[in-house]
Design a protein around this nucleic acid. Structure first.
Lengths: 191, 191
DNA sequence: CCACCTTGTGCAACTAGTTGCATAAGGCGT
DNA sequence: ACGCCTTATGCAACTAGTTGCACAAGGTGG
């Protein structure tokens, strides 16, 4: 139940149309809460119906027209409530770790290449985060909101750092593993 | 599309009934791919229908009877295929980070308590992982499957370590933040 | 001047996961 | 022998997210 709140946050930072929101979700906010444009449009409709946001009175609201939204007081209140309410972390689901575990049973064939690919993706993401940090959080900037936002970015950086390190470690393990195959002494002879 | 593969892995490790699987998902496998018993039963039905697993011929398959499943060769093949196939990491969705970002706009009221609670949860999980490591991976054990499984556990340990550290850092930031409120110089005076 | 591309909005159908409840068998106490 | 608890299996309805497509407006090039 977080997408509406992600949208409220984005709209409070800057009133936007659906497509503008979509673009921003592909950058800053989407780094830790991704969403497709269809999700966003649907949610904008709901939020408007609930009276939490409203369309800024632009020209004519015809099709193919930009329609910008802003947050209404009840929307801000709801966001504040949600932010402060207790929430349980949702259970982990990580396919890569699952695949590694499966590999222990059915063999590692093909996995190494994908680990390498993931490593590259995470390295790229890490580089991007560092660039954002350099650009948006120079040493002087440390008002309360800056500190909070920097904290979030730090989480992103540290997470990507973890993944790159772990993947590096995993690949080095693969390097001296009894190649591919069942990886199981008791496995049946293949074919 | 990973739940069926999680189940195949679990069944290869040890043929089990639905409930036994559920219990194991609450422990080892579920640490990185959680599932409820309803998901598991449904998926067992599908896997059986597809001919990837079969029910072990037990007594009478009446209701309230244990029904254990084992993986058939096509099931093993499918798992091997999936494990080696390239897969994109799925986009991140972390509500806690989102809430922090929201807090930069609508204020931090209530958040600190929940951060503290999350810190405790992660510390507990970390302790559990370390205990498993101590118990299941003593210095001698390092055959190929041991190495792979240890690698997975290491990821869990390092992830929990990251979270505990980051949450600690976040809480220390909160400690010298201009208390609660809007955390925004330009915010409207509350109420 | 019209075919085609881009921008922006949106519906419909599908997949995956969650929640709440139903049902059956067997043991246990009184 | 009856109610009740635990174990085990499962259906149905719901929520959240994904995928594929449709459609309108406005610009662009042959």
């Amino acid at each position: 139940m977080s997408l509406p709140h992600a949208i409220l946050t984005a709209l409070l930072e800057k009133p936007s149309s659906g497509l503008e929101l979509t673009r921003r979700f592909d950058k800053s906010i989407g780094y830790f809460w991704s969403a497709t444009h269809q999700q966003i449009y649907r949610e904008l409709g709901k939020l408007e119906a609930e009276g939490l946001i409203r369309a800024l009175p632009a020209e004519q609201p015809a099709r193919g027209q930009k329609k910008a939204y802003e947050v209404l007081p009840p929307g801000r209140a709801e966001l504040a409530r949600w932010t402060g309410a207790a929430q349980d972390p949702k259970p982990v689901r990580d396919a890569l770790l699952l695949r590694l575990r499966a590999a222990a049973v059915v063999g590692t064939a093909g996995l190494e290449a994908d680990l390498r690919r993931h490593l590259e993706l995470h390295e790229r993401q890490l580089a991007e985060y560092r660039e954002i940090e350099r650009r948006d959080f120079p040493p002087g900037k440390n008002g309360p909101q800056d500190r909070l936002r920097h904290l979030v970015l730090r989480a992103g950086i540290d997470l990507e750092t973890f993944w790159t390190q772990w993947l590096g470690h995993a690949l080095s393990e693969f390097a001296h593993l009894p190649d591919a195959g069942e990886a199981e002494p008791s496995g049946e002879p293949r074919a």
